[in-house]
Design a binder for these strands. Sequence first.
DNA 1: CTAAAATGATAGTATTACTATCTTCTGTGA
DNA 2: TCACAGAAGATAGTAATACTATCATTTTAG
Lengths: 225, 225
Amino acid sequence: MEIQLHIKMNEKLFLRNPEQSELGRKIIFHSIQLIHKNGFEDFTFKKLAKEMGSTEAGIYRYFENKHKLLIYLTAWYWSWLEYQLNFHTHNIDDPTVKLKRVIKLLASTVEDDVRTDHIDENTLHQVIITEGSKTYLTRNVSEDNKDQLFKPYKDLCAIIGNMIVECNPNYKYPKSLASTIIEMAHFQNFFMHNLPSLTDFGVHKDELEIISFLEDLVFSVLIKA
Amino acid sequence: MEIQLHIKMNEKLFLRNPEQSELGRKIIFHSIQLIHKNGFEDFTFKKLAKEMGSTEAGIYRYFENKHKLLIYLTAWYWSWLEYQLNFHTHNIDDPTVKLKRVIKLLASTVEDDVRTDHIDENTLHQVIITEGSKTYLTRNVSEDNKDQLFKPYKDLCAIIGNMIVECNPNYKYPKSLASTIIEMAHFQNFFMHNLPSLTDFGVHKDELEIISFLEDLVFSVLIKA
DNA sequence: CTAAAATGATAGTATTACTATCTTCTGTGA
DNA sequence: TCACAGAAGATAGTAATACTATCATTTTAG
């Protein structure tokens, strides 16, 4: 039995749907690899075309520009993560346990999802850690936000916020705590590997320590409130 | 009595010291304004030169490229903030009070420091909120880090980390908590203004609420530990 | 089998990110 | 006071980036 996982993406993210053609799927696959290899600043559609054995113009038929492509990848990632989250917290009633699963999911190395053959989730995860916040730290946030481009991120944040409320209805900042968990799961990972003195994880470089840090943070606040 | 404040910057940040000439100081002043106005992605040395009534080549004599200039501005900002922090926590013994001052300093709108006439600290603060993390979220982090370009940021983080240890020597993650406070003071501000559903501050858009959120977070963790 | 759609190949433009060179200005110290 | 060094201005040039346009060829869907 072969199961394919398909995530429906906001149409404003692309000019032509990359999931629906071989070329489109190659764009997704190779862009993840190239951005991971050389960083988003160095990444161009010309280099991507060369890597893929295709042409620059061909890529422009799918994506308006590289920033939209990055938002696409990020949106896909958060949607996929929401799916994973639903799966892993399914049938769990205790909100504390659910929240622990979420933290683990956010802060752990991802394993490749075999149901998506044009996306290497592990590499994508690493790309999102380094490049994810560049999607919204721009002059166009508001416009892009109006086009709902950040919906998957906001949805995930809302879900986590709701779990926090379930854990403790008296806590006053569930949404901010949720966005803090998400961002810090990534930033502490980036710091651990690249600027270790900004963390307490420089010695072992172990993701489990990030999970412990976040769990301690979240549950201290929620128990106290 | 006129007092000037001067911050000695790492020499690897520039080719010619911008603080030591009128042109250099104009570069600093106008780059802050331009980056604030149109964002770092849209910012070029050509546009900056036009804005200043100078030439592109002239700016290249001071800074290798716009990324180095951004790191310069960011490093200056963190150095200045460390100075402010020392000033505001001077003669205070209670580490809890000190930590509260730090949080307030990080999360509040800055007022212009009249002792630095070529830098508008309030605008610079807003620039750092949006563009600050782009200094290190690149392929060159490690190299730039070796050149000590992030020293002011790391120093500030270490100081805050030490205050955390003073508050509670048993807490296991002082450095990560410090970097979390710093980053979240900025991110929650950015979210509040641009993606308010990621925060609990969308209604009043009031920095005081961010301060309350961070204080609650920090002291819950530290009391419990 | 045919028409439409997708892709490939190629070319072209404005802007970006620089480097180089030559001239002019400006301040200092002999 | 003059000369000379260093800073700044003016101008030009190059390779790469970020696109757009056009036309031929291949694929595919009815």
